[in-house]
């Protein structure tokens, strides 16, 4: 058996609110093989986003270990963690979160500004990513000139432009109509099958869950079942 890409061991997360400790994740252990498309489901407040944020390295666990690739990210410094995110993580938000003053092109280029790529190389990468999401013709458009589905596809282009190790999506279709949601899901599936991207997606949507190769259910901070495919 090959080593899993993601290895979570006894991960706990508690938030402190006015001296009261709120346990959000309790001893979560998961391993995700490379090339997997994992769906994370569960009721509201069960800790799905929290878990995804830990994987993304934008939040830190209270206990346990998180290894992604050959990096134990729970012990990285802030600065090293930021550099690691830039290199390895592509994050897709529910509300797209494009920068309104930047065009689609500039939004997708944003992560590349942190690399040593030349302007010309950046341009090539951005156009490749926009082509994958079929929005090359909208490169000069601002977010407010795009539909929600198009905005989310630009956001996906932004997430894949650096060719990250891992794609993380937190309810990527949560704010979209059925048709746009379908397009986005098809796109994610293609990224998984054609481009061999490992994806972890949080979702409430059964249609979305169908597309994943594995499903994981969270209930009050613990894993309740793992449905194989």
């Amino acid at each position: 058996m090959t080593m899993a890409l993601i290895e979570l061991r006894d991960v706990t997360k508690t938030y402190k609110r006015d001296a009261i400790e709120i346990p959000v994740l309790e001893s979560v252990t998961i391993s995700v093989p490379e090339g997997d498309y994992l769906g994370l489901m569960g009721p509201s407040g069960s800790g799905k986003s929290t878990l995804l944020n830990l994987l993304a390295g934008i939040d830190r666990p209270t206990g346990g270990s998180i290894r992604i690739g050959d990096t134990e990210i729970s012990t990285l410094s802030e600065r090293a963690l930021a550099a690691w995110r830039a290199r390895h993580i592509g994050f897709i938000f529910q509300l797209y979160n494009l920068i309104p003053v930047l065009t689609a092109f500039e939004n997708v280029e944003l992560p590349l500004l942190l690399t040593s790529l030349s302007k010309k190389q950046r341009r090539e990468h951005v156009m490749t990513a926009l082509n994958i999401v079929s929005l090359a013709d909208r490169a000069a458009h601002y977010p407010r000139q795009l539909s929600g589905g198009q905005e989310q596809r630009v956001a996906i282009a932004r997430a894949i432009v650096t060719d990250p190790t891992l794609l993380l999506a937190d309810e990527p279709t949560g704010d979209l109509d059925a048709k746009s949601a379908g397009e986005v899901l098809t796109l994610l599936q293609r990224l998984n099958t054609e481009y061999k991207k490992t994806i972890v997606m949080v979702t409430h949507d059964p249609h979305a869950a169908e597309r994943a190769t594995h499903l994981l259910h969270l209930e009050k901070g613990t894993l309740v079942e793992q449905v194989g495919a």
Binding site: R79, A82, R87, I89, F91, F93, I99, L114, R158
Partner: peptide, 10 residues
């Protein structure tokens, strides 16, 4: 926060 998520250091 989005830029930080993309890996922009503080």
């Amino acid at each position: 926060a989005v830029m930080r998520t993309l890996g922009y250091p503080s």
